[in-house]
């Protein structure tokens, strides 16, 4: 199982005990975080007008204050500004990696789920092999071959997530295929193509939206882990993982340098989880 599958399982569990459409305080918070990230990602200047790369050596290592809400880093750059401007990078990485993971997973999952037992067996063995790799290693090898950077990290995260997507998608395809309405359609003489397009895919795609939401959160955390190891975004880029990594050096003297970037990573991941579940729950009632 992959982390994604665990998350998806947990989200589905939400159905069993959900107590109606009432909006929980967690969900409100998650929406606020998501809105903040969107605004920060699209119009960072609105929240933080400064230059995320602008240095001011005279103002280095300042603790949080009204002038610098999150303090400043070793070159006097404002951490609040960098966190806000970093949202764009993180969102792009999150969405792109999820798109890659979903794309590859969709192709693998579909051919496994649709092309009969022989193909299904082969794809399953392939997935098993990929799962036996520690997730980090797959990304590590990919980055070493293609060199570190934001884009290789994004592709690496997407690819390492794809087996998880593939297996979920395959499972769902099989479940839908076996379901009564597809059987009915088969009896009615629909072609395989019609089956896939009109019945199976739409029923499989709805949960993909939930999966995607969860996936974006996870991809952001993974990408920041790679940046932390020095394999993703490169300094001085305002990327959360890279900022956190740079801040660890000054842990004992400037805790704010690593605390705030870490905090937004955690908040983003939590918001994605909560939102994914909220969507799942509502999809059930829709």
């Amino acid at each position: 199982m992959s982390e994604l599958e665990v998350q998806a399982t947990l989200s589905r569990g939400e159905r069993s005990r959900s107590r109606g459409r009432r909006v929980t305080p967690f969900e409100v918070l998650a929406v606020v975080v998501a809105l903040f990230l969107l605004v920060a990602g699209l119009l960072p200047g609105l929240l933080a007008p400064g230059d995320p790369l602008g240095i001011d050596p005279a103002a280095a290592f300042q603790p949080p204050s009204p002038a610098h809400w999150f303090g400043t880093d070793e070159s006097g750059r404002d951490i609040w500004t960098r966190v806000v401007h970093g949202a764009g990078t993180s969102l792009v990485i999150g969405f792109a990696a999820t798109a890659i993971g979903l794309g590859v997973g969709l192709v693998l999952g579909t051919i496994a789920g649709m092309l009969g037992p022989a193909v299904d067996f082969s794809v399953n063995r392939l997935l098993e092999v990929l799962f036996a790799f520690p997730g980090l290693l797959l990304a590590l090898l990919f980055i070493l071959i293609f060199g570190p950077g934001v884009w290789t990290a994004t592709v690496a995260v997407g690819l390492s997530a794809s087996p998880g997507y593939a297996r979920i998608i395959r499972g769902q395809l099989l479940a839908v295929r076996r379901s009564s309405f597809v059987e009915a359609a088969t009896v009615l003489g629909r072609t395989r193509r019609q089956l896939l397009l009109r019945h199976i895919l739409p029923n499989t795609l709805a949960p993909l939206f939930v999966l995607g939401t969860l996936g974006v959160g996870q991809a952001i955390v993974w990408a920041s882990a790679l940046s932390y190891l020095g394999l993703g975004a490169q300094p001085p880029a305002a990327e959360w993982g890279a900022m956190l990594s740079a801040g660890r050096t000054y842990l004992t003297t400037a805790w704010w340098m690593s605390f705030f970037p870490g905090l937004v990573i955690v908040l983003t991941a939590v918001a994605a989880t909560v939102l994914g579940r909220a969507i799942e729950r509502r999809a059930r009632y829709a």
Binding site: F26, L244, L251
Partner: peptide, 25 residues
């Protein structure tokens, strides 16, 4: 239930590299 759920979701989202740092501090 709500508090437990909140703690769990947050805990699950903690990246190892940040948690280790926070614990050391």
């Amino acid at each position: 239930w709500a508090v437990g759920s909140g703690i769990e979701i947050t805990a699950a989202a903690l990246p190892h590299f940040w948690l280790a740092t926070a614990l050391i501090i």
